[in-house]
Amino acid sequence: MARMRSRGFQVFLPLSVLAILILINLIKGADYFSISIINGALYGNIPNILFGASELVILSIGMTLVTSSSGGQDISVGVAGAITSSVFVRLLLSSGGITWAAILAAFLASCAVGIAIGAFNGALVAVFKVQPMVATLILFTAGRSVAFLIDGRLSPILANDLTSQVGSVIPGVPIQTPIILTAVFIALFAVLLRTTNLKLYSQCVGINQKAARLNGINPVRIKFLTYMILGVCSAVAGFIAVTKAGRHDSVNLLKYVEMDAILAVAIGGNPLGGGTFSIAGSIIGAYTIEVLNRTLLRLEVDTETIKAFKAAFIIILMVIASPVVRQFAARGSRWMRDRLGGSAQAGQR
């Protein structure tokens, strides 16, 4: 019971923020949810949000897992995506003909590179006990040069019908492809967490490494694994980003996305020091960031002040989500429950 409720509260916060943002948008114009069909695909604010947030959602899922197991964040996810997608583009362009099979093969190869990058970061964090942010700083600083070297020349062009369809719409399918890919990714991840002990083990390691070890869980292996999974997330995000852009720009592809990914984890109510986590919270957090960005555009906030507005909003949000305020709210609700004659036992947590 208690576990259910605490999880409920965790998702409740980002959801309520999202609701407030949507309310603001509705006040600005009642047609906010209106969806039309243009060129055979759904069009409107909601599809735009789902489309725009796809990379961020995928990265925030992996970031949540890493945060849980290692108590730190990977700041190289954007750069990792730039590297894996440069491998994807390089392989695809040198494969002769661009077919669905070639795209799939190049994508899988880029996932392998993502796993290798994750293994590199994971080794530094798990085996050499380097602080995650410091460990991933290496790739953060050097990674774009690596992507540049793989590109050979700057911004190779991916202009062809098939990858362009991956980045926009496949004819006959009414939903933009990145939205579908994101949904599939979320579903696969949900299956992974349901069918394995990954979540439990990662939380154990994040809360207390020694206790985890005493219970037969190998913290090194779990951390290593979560970083490799994040590497796959980077590869998928890089794949979506590069097919959207239609060319590989090693300098700007997925730039600064790591900060938003960490923010999504935080908005999702996940403790950044590791331990318990809620993937759903992070996903909602990622969509919240996307909606926030678009709300500021919709309200026509001055270009010069848009960043300050975003920062102010996030500060308010983080204060509300902070443990201090949370405890206060929990105490308040317990007091209410006691008053209303609810069971005192349930209120003990």
Binding site: G29, N48, G52, N293, R298
Partner: peptide, 17 residues
């Protein structure tokens, strides 16, 4: 970062408005 995606959002906001 002179971002392609941000630019896209600016235009999307103008269209939906």
């Amino acid at each position: 970062s002179w971002s392609l995606e941000e630019a896209r959002k600016v235009v999307e906001a103008a269209i939906t408005a």
